[in-house]
Amino acid sequence: MTAAARSRRLLAGPLGLVALAVVVGSVFFVTGTQAHGQSNVVSTNPSDILAGQQLFQEHCQACHGYEGEGGQTSAPPLVSVGAAAADFYLTTGRMPLNNPGNEAARHHPFFDATQISQLVAYVNALPTITGTNQTGPTIPTVAPLCPTATPDPSDPGCVTLSEGLQAFSLNCAACHQAAGSGGILSKGNVVPSLHNSNMTQVGEAIRVGPKPMPVFAPSQMSDQQMSAIAQYVQYLHHPADPGGLGISHFGPVAEGFVAVLFGFGILLFAARMIGTRG
C-alpha cells in the first residue's frame, strides 16, 4: 500500500464522521423545532374528556378530590387551574407524586402522551363540568424564531434570540442562572436546571408559576416576551459554545476547581518530578 493510500485509509473514518455530522447538523438546523415554534391544542372531544376522567379517578382524585375540588392534604383544587398547569405538571413528571409529602420535582412522565392529552382535556373541561366560570391559562403557543437575527418587520409573529436573552436575564437569570443551569432558593425550594425543558413547558411555567416560581401573567409579560424566553431557553440547551468544554456553565466555582485541582495539580506534579526531596 502506498503512503498516499494509507493516509487516505487513515483519514477516511474521521472525515466520514465529520461529513456525517455536517449533513445531520444542517438537516437538524433546517428542520429544528426552533424554526417552527411550538403549539399544542387542547382537545374538547367528549371521548377524550371521558378517558381523562377515568385516568383522573384512578390516579389523581385520592388527593385532589372528586372533580378536582381539592383534598384534605395539601393538594390544591384543580377546578380552575387550566390546561397549561395540567400539561406542565404531567409532561415534566412532577405529578403524580409517589407520596403526598414529596416535593414535586422533575421526573420521567408517568403517563404517555395520549394519556396526558386526555387528562389535560379533562382538567380543561372541569370548569364546565362543575359549573365554575373561572378558568386558568391555556397551553401557550410559542412563536417561531425569525429567520434573521433582527426582528423582521414583515413577519410580526416571530421572535429573536436577542429579545429572549434580554427578557431572560431580566426575569429568569436571578434564580435559574444566566445559562439556565439552575440554582437554589432558600427554604429548600429547588430551582431546576432548564436544560431539559421544551419550549411549551417553559411557556407554561411562565404562565402557571409552579411553586415557588412567581406567575408571569400576560399583563406583566407579553406573549412575545414569553415566546422569546422559551426560544432562548431552547437555544441554551446547545448554545454557541466556543472555547472548549463548558463545565456546565456554572461559572467561577467550577472554573476554580479545574484551575486549582487540575491545572495547578499538574504543575505541582511536574515540580515534584523535576525537583528532589533532599
Binding site: S169, A174, E255
Partner: peptide, 25 residues
C-alpha cells in the same frame, strides 16, 4: 476548557443579576 463565556452572561445592566455569580476562586 471554556472559561467565563461572557456571551452567555450577556451585557451588564444594573437591574439584572444571575444566581451563581461568584468571584474567581
Amino acid at each position: 476548557i471554556q472559561i467565563n463565556p461572557v456571551w452567555l452572561y450577556g451585557p451588564y445592566n444594573p437591574y439584572t443579576v444571575s444566581i451563581g455569580a461568584q468571584p474567581d476562586w
